[in-house]
Amino acid sequence: MLKILKYSIYDLLRSRWSYVYFLFYLLLGFVLLFLNNDVNKAVITLMNVIIVLTPLIGTIFGIMYFYNSKEFTELLLAQPIKRSNIFMGQYVGISLSLTLSLVLGLGIPFIVYGLFRSAAIFDFTLLLVVASFLNFIFVALAYNIALSTENKIKGFGYAILMWLFLAVVYDGLFLISLIAFNDYPLGKFSLIATMFNPIDLSRILILLKLDFSALLGYTGAVFKEFFGTAFGMVMSMLVLSLWVILPVLNINRKLRKKDF
């Protein structure tokens, strides 16, 4: 598996897209800090970009890579290598290279602008951790979709739909339910509802770290009580990990039955 991982990382590092992605974040980081000159505020703006863009890029990259390297994968499958090794190697390869682009791309400008001297370092670290999680989660989800649809166009469509659902539609449904059940205490409900969407969970995690809880009123107090504690933090990291583990397990389950 490590060998496959190595090859897929090499392959990706040689591809243009990793560099484009890296340069994009590098530019974004520098421009943000240049315009803001305040690391704290840049973290907030960055969060807005990251929670939308990272899942999208992860999804598209994952699905593209799968379909593009399909022939090579089939060649590998003919070799005496375990199926799960091949696909896990590829999966971790993509996720890692994406994460690398992101961490380096954002890390460099922030370090240049004196991150270590500012108090924002923990918020920034959390931002990077969450973004990495989002990469792993959405590449896994994309692989799930790719494995279950042979048709490239269909697969692509489903993947984009999945992203659209989690990034936009889910929040719409969430909002409608919040308005519809306005008369009931909704603290617990919103807590659980955010757990079921990795994008929402990441957003709330970062918002609370930036102390937006004061804005959020009663629900904010419930959230702060939960996420503010070490237990809440561990819990939410656990949920994010589950969001990685469950799709990965599903990939492996699908692999066993799939006929290539």
Partner: peptide
Amino acid sequence: YIVNKSPDALVLLRSLFVDV
């Protein structure tokens, strides 16, 4: 405006849906 009607909706602050 929505937040005025149902304050709990503030949980969705800074989500893409809200921007849309």
